[in-house]
Write a protein that binds this DNA or RNA. Structure first.
Lengths: 144, 144
DNA sequence: ACCTTGTTTTGGATGACTCAAAACAGCGCT
DNA sequence: AGCGCTGTTTTGAGTCATCCAAAACAAGGT
């Protein structure tokens, strides 16, 4: 029967997309790994959807992003990452050593959480913050 | 004689790097275009340093970055950009429509200009902010 | 002027991602 | 339950930014 989570079904269908095994598996993979690259997702999807392709994963991810179901982030120097948390203006903290990523809620509540000092006439729609540092494990290792 | 700017010479030599025509030209290109991709730099360098290669531009840019002379930024979905402003914790505002970029000084003065609400145990070294929006030209066009 | 060592050139390789056409499968309809 | 329209997946190739490595070359101290 290969039933996946019904929440995935609802989310996918609710976005006006057809529900397929492939998409369900991609959605579930993102639930299991909240900051996954396309390769990460593929690795999780392959065992349950044999014969699937990396391209299908990209298709599904891009469709989800277009539908507003998934958010794509791209820390400098890394492959794109996908996450299900969406539309809540949260940010990210990235470990410079091992690449670990955690969510950081916006310190100031509602979006946009910051205003630039000088907009140069730009209309600012969003402020994206990336904190760079060391995760606990790498910090401990560096101290030794 | 092909003399380039003496400020370039001083900066390059001051970083412990040898002064070459190629590097001088790359430095000058960054002066002329404060947010240039490797291709942009190459386009500006070729006319004055015939026979140079894109790889040489990459070499020079990477050497500059390693030496702390140049900063590399990478707005999501775009090629890396290089700038001479360094070590002053400024941020960027990027036009979603045409890709125009401007510097934005840190609203809160000294680095790091923000602290996350929850660090998840990470040691935060830097906060990088990217403002996304519409430049004046694209905003005017969108309004019409 | 010379020699050491850093730099440039050349050519190839990689990773992340996209494009496009043909095969396939949801799901609304009857 | 079956049909068919239309969206989805597969396959295979292609692109772009960037890097790697070996050989030719040149900056600058002696």
């Amino acid at each position: 029967m290969l039933r996946g989570s019904t929440t995935a079904d609802a989310a996918i269908r609710g976005s006006g997309l057809r529900v397929t095994d492939s998409r369900r598996a991609v959605y579930d993979a993102l639930c299991a790994n909240p900051h996954a690259s396309a390769d990460d997702v593929y690795a999780r999807v392959v065992p349950t959807v044999p014969g699937t392709s990396l391209q299908s994963v990209y298709n599904a991810l891009n469709d989800f992003v277009d539908a507003g179901l998934v958010r794509r982030i791209e820390p400098a120097g890394r492959a794109g990452l996908f996450e299900l948390r969406v539309a809540d203006n949260h940010h990210h903290i990235v470990c410079r050593s091992c690449g670990a990523i955690e969510d950081v809620d916006c310190a100031h509540g509602a979006a946009p959480c910051l205003q630039p000092s000088d907009t140069h006439g730009f209309i600012v729609e969003e402020a994206e913050v990336t904190y760079w540092g060391l995760c606990p494990a790498c910090a401990a290792e560096a101290a030794a």
